[in-house]
Nucleic acid binder design. Structure first.
Lengths: 342, 342
DNA sequence: CTGAAAGCGCTTACAG
DNA sequence: CTGAAAGCGCTTACAG
């Protein structure tokens, strides 16, 4: 059986290609009867219009892109990004939009190169971008390329947004975490963040510092990179007695689940008990936190929902050109054994 | 700046579109000088040929598809599939082939519908398919749709293969696991497998049974579904004294890492110690196994490499039409505390 | 080695 | 409401 085309259907039905096209796309210009006959025949033949022909004539790829940049060895260990991906995919599937996925290393140049390529080839109609950086070059790059985008995790400014994105109130999340530790009696804590070039880490750090100060708590900041090993090393460094003159540190906040796991391993090595000697809390929840021993208290941020919202912003931008910003609900603290009061 | 096209480049250079096309695609039919001028101009303008125009005229989408079917709630918790995905993506990127990703629930009909759609729209040139089922309907479906595919994890038959795929010798893997447990002194063990409708589980079960028999060991089989809870329930069931008349079961083999984690949780609830009372071993390695307490002995199968090989088989099939089968190297046992001899 | 032309399979003004 | 025709931006025989 040769591949059917719209011309073939038209011939079979004795009508023009235009009528078939109008009927398929739900546009006016065909009688109800004709439309029915077209749809019935397409159904019967299991026929769908060619996506590339459609893309070419519509100047629309029908796909959006997402590049996941991470250490290749770590890919798949980051539950937060996988949750995002699942949410994004679900929203896109509902709108018949395909998802083009690329994974690159941590080098920003690779990510930029993918955008240039996609824009040049008109392979995708828009992209989803993650983790707003300080002086992030990507918005300007994407504007220059004419590639619509949504930036997941962008700062809330008073002004009307320059591009679409999702925002999170990190002060609220920081308060949730710090208040919980304060209530449990902690007065001197460590905060192991992700890289400071990430805007949201800057905001979290400020939120933690200010909330802690309001309680009269002391915070030691430590910059790390979200890897398990980094969390481990941070804990070893911060908990070495020589590093903490004065009162001992009794709790540690980790910027993600993997670092929290690393911190937990470090405690074991150091012969410290959790939560008795040091309590641990993670800024991301995941199965790792649930399965750890002791299970780790974590801020649950619902990545699936966040991905869905980001995807919907992008679809809306592509359909209507509307630039807007949606704020994410605050995270919910899942209290587990790692911060139990003794 | 209006979007450049191949006609624009031709005009600027005072040559025909055909020459530009030949030059870009590395085909003969242009002088070296002309080719250079074309490539230089494209580079200077940051210009790439339109993927949809190319797809239409070549009748090739330049993309392959992959549908991940899993419980939406579990997506992202399955490290094995994420590792596969990373390996696949790496191989495809090297061949300038895009990856179209879809996630659907566990209902096979949804997966089939995606294939029908992709084939009808000629949206992808081929697909990667996972987990060969008993009486798997997918090979016949894909053949009917004319959609080339590679089936990752297909049985090794003596005959020339009917389709491309990767094979694994589950007998060897089973022997690795069983020998390890035998060496550690276990004589009566539980084997918690994934669903029996998966061909590779059938093969693993047979492999375990036969190897254990050769050592005079006793095996109790239990069918589960790869979820954490299922592993938990399996352990509770198998370790309840009433279930194991006679000698107690001293070790359990779990079909994946999540079930092994569930098993570990169950042991804690039952007041049993690991490895002292019951040893645990997982057929997949992952960060979960490494972080568990005690850390769980696991068979490492290198999913990234497997994904890469599967993708290369598909690319080869698309380029040359070669149907072939590659066998995966046996897994390597990573021995950890969960099977330490006391 | 180069150019003019047809073709890939749709969509969409434009006449009727 | 319907049909003939141009156009989307490439690729590829076919002449020269």
């Amino acid at each position: 059986m040769a591949k059917e085309t719209i011309a073939g259907l038209a011939k079979r039905l004795g009508i023009s290609k235009a009528s078939v096209s109008y009927a398929l796309n739900g546009q006016s210009g065909v009688s109800d009867l004709t439309r029915r006959r077209v749809l019935d025949l397409a159904e019967e033949l299991d026929w769908y219009p060619s996506s590339s022909a459609r893309a070419l004539s519509r100047s629309r790829a029908g796909a959006v892109g997402m590049v996941l940049s991470a250490d290749p060895a770590l890919i798949g260990t980051e539950p937060y990004h996988m949750g995002l991906l699942a949410g994004i995919e679900a929203a896109l599937a509902e709108s018949d939009t395909a998802l083009m996925l690329r994974m690159v290393g941590n080098d920003p140049a690779q990510e930029h190169a993918v955008y240039e390529r996609w824009a040049g080839e008109r392979k995708v109609d828009g992209v989803l971008v993650f983790d707003h950086l300080l002086d992030d070059p990507r918005p300007a790059l994407l504007d220059r390329l004419g590639l619509p985008f949504v930036l997941h995790g962008t700062p809330e400014t008073g002004a009307p947004p320059a591009f679409s994105g999702t925002t999170t109130d990190h002060d609220v999340d920081a308060a949730t975490i710090i208040d919980h530790l304060h209530d449990a009696g902690h007065r001197r804590i460590g905060h192991v963040s992700g890289p400071h070039r990430l805007l949201h880490e800057k905001e979290r750090i400020r939120g933690v510092r200010e909330r802690a100060a309001s309680h009269g708590m002391e915070v030691v900041q430590y910059e790390a990179n979200y890897a398990l090993q980094a969390g481990h090393d941070a804990a070893v460094t911060l908990l070495r007695p020589s590093e903490t003159p004065g009162a001992p540190m009794t709790a540690m906040v980790f910027g993600n689940d993997l670092m929290a796991m690393g911190g937990l391993l470090a405690l074991r090595e150091l012969g410290l008990r959790c939560p008795d000697d040091v309590a641990i809390i993670s800024w991301d929840d995941s199965l790792h936190c649930r399965l750890a021993f002791p299970a780790v208290t974590a801020l649950s941020r619902n990545p699936g929902m966040q991905g869905r919202v980001a995807a919907e912003l992008l679809l809306d931008l592509l359909d209507t050109g509307t630039i807007r910003t949606t704020s994410m609900p605050p995270g919910e603290l899942v209290v587990r054994a790692s911060t139990a009061t003794v």
